[in-house]
Write a protein that binds this DNA or RNA. Structure first.
Length: 209
DNA sequence: TGTCGGATCAGCT
DNA sequence: GCTGATCCGACAC
């Protein structure tokens, strides 16, 4: 119950990015930046599949300076700037060279609430502290300059932990992904996973079930 | 070299 | 519910 197992490359290597996105629900995202440790339990994720997913930055094998990180080994952090101000935290998954990724959209804050609140310029009990991917990046001190770093090396800056928390399948909801309406038929793929009724989950109104 | 728009959020109304 | 903030990557020219 109180084991804190850091996820290893094996935990990220499955080619089933949806299974991984679902499995990350209830895991813990942790950062240690300038000596400040912050952690939060993951309550919302989305899967992106490079090969055939028009919502993915790596759709159809697209490779640019930014997206080259997505082709790195499983357990690499892919972080990019969105709308010029939001730093989006993704975990590269799947076999090396397969550009799958899981976007971490929301956390339930667990520790380091004061530093999170300081970074967010809001009260530590505000439920917007780690709600939505831009908020997660800001609260955790994650920025695009960190893209490409490994989450599986010793003493990582960003990592995931399994703390033995099991979210029952009946408490996990599924829906279309947020903000990808441009992605044609892929926009409707139900590749978003979230903890039902959790107050840190974003965009409740778009839930399917 | 220039233009376009996005895997968003907070603060209003 | 609406809107401004804010900027770099991607691609057209």
């Amino acid at each position: 119950m109180h084991s804190h197992r850091v996820l290893t490359e094996d935990d990220y290597r499955s080619s089933d990015v949806n299974a991984l996105a679902r499995s990350f629900i209830g895991k813990f995202l942790c950062t240690k930046i300038d000596g400040h440790v912050t952690t939060g339990m993951i309550v919302e994720t989305e899967a992106y599949r490079g090969a055939d997913d028009k919502a993915s930055h790596a759709y159809n094998g697209k490779r640019t300076k930014r997206t080259s990180v997505m082709y790195e080994s499983a357990g690499t952090a892919y972080i990019y700037l969105c709308y010029g101000l939001h730093h989006m935290m993704n975990v590269v998954t799947g076999p090396c060279g397969i550009a799958n990724a899981v976007l971490i959209r929301s956390l339930e804050p667990i520790s380091g609430l004061e530093i999170m609140a300081e970074r967010r310029n809001m009260a530590s009990d505000d439920n917007r502290l780690t709600k939505g991917p831009g908020s997660v990046g800001q609260a955790m001190g994650i920025h695009a300059g960190m893209t490409g770093i490994s989450m599986t090396i010793p003493e990582p800056v960003i990592w995931l932990e399994d703390r033995g928390v099991i979210i029952p399948p009946s408490e996990i909801g599924q829906s279309e992904r947020i903000g990808v309406s441009y992605a044609a038929e892929c926009a409707h793929w139900p590749w978003r996973y979230f903890v039902l009724k959790n107050k840190y989950v974003s965009a409740h109104q778009r839930m399917l079930k």
